[in-house]
Nucleic acid binder design. Sequence first.
DNA 1: CACTTATACTTGAAACTTCAAGCACTACCT
DNA 2: AGGTAGTGCTTGAAGTTTCAAGTATAAGTG
Lengths: 164, 164
Amino acid sequence: MHEDEPRWLTDGEQQIWRTYLQATMLLDDHLDRQLQRDAKLPHLYYALLVQLGEAPRRRLRMTELARQAKITRSRLSHAIARLEKNGWVRREDCPSDKRGQNAILTERGAEVLAEAAPGHVAAVRQALFDRLTPEQQKSLGEIMKIVAEGLQPCEAGADLPWLR
Amino acid sequence: MHEDEPRWLTDGEQQIWRTYLQATMLLDDHLDRQLQRDAKLPHLYYALLVQLGEAPRRRLRMTELARQAKITRSRLSHAIARLEKNGWVRREDCPSDKRGQNAILTERGAEVLAEAAPGHVAAVRQALFDRLTPEQQKSLGEIMKIVAEGLQPCEAGADLPWLR
DNA sequence: CACTTATACTTGAAACTTCAAGCACTACCT
DNA sequence: AGGTAGTGCTTGAAGTTTCAAGTATAAGTG
């Protein structure tokens, strides 16, 4: 068993990759900071409230929420525990499966969401959409779709966060 | 002082934004996992070793390293403390400024880096570059450059991680 | 039905990051 | 020179995420 010389990244690829890392790092930091300041919430927690807010009857099974958010169930458990303590979310036993739990957006949670949303959207616009041409936006969408789909193959045995 | 109705994201923009969040989440998770498994190191810590490895004399001032990595100095301090404990990095007082510290990649650190690099590069290729056309790669680079530059304006008073 | 395996979720500890000080030194100002 | 503000870095605690179990229920198998 012999390891071939790996195919290193070309200078151009390196440049792209580093810029990607920097941009995603900075954007994530920027949004986290904006939300932490204005809504006392990290970006991921905000995203969870958004997903719940859009779900029918404002509720979602834990694993389904983890799947949509691309995180582990453990991470979600801790996050929901915190949101529950703050009163933005509550839990409910799943009627059809006694192992299951639903996370439910509370009225207070919906209010927090409504208050935080405008500032958050403005931040996303200002940092991303307002700076890109329509062609670039389209291209970004296509690229990210390819990457996202590539990393969550349908096959069984895939190492996806919400199945760990 | 009156808040106008915010400019919400269009359906198309929402779609792009969500896909972006999912792709970056999955990719970050994927690389973290690969490196944690193969090199016992989170992706960010690996990136720090890379930066040090490329710097002249394998050393960099703390703030400069934080600036390159787009993280806070506090985060860097903790990270370097861990890397130092593992023997991959050591510190040195800066000769010209007694407040300053250099982080230096050790021989052991360089070895770890050399062992981890092929697998990491392969993962980046497989998840990203191998799936994109040359045009898409170029476009991605341009887009990320715009975003990264937009988030680190030259002006004083900008809220950049390494200045916090 | 008993038995095994898989699924759904949680938990506590360890690892990592953020936050708010804090210390030491430098640069600036008079 | 002395005083003041700014820079460079670190630290401990609080918050978040990962990791490795653990509990309970469901589904599959002989």
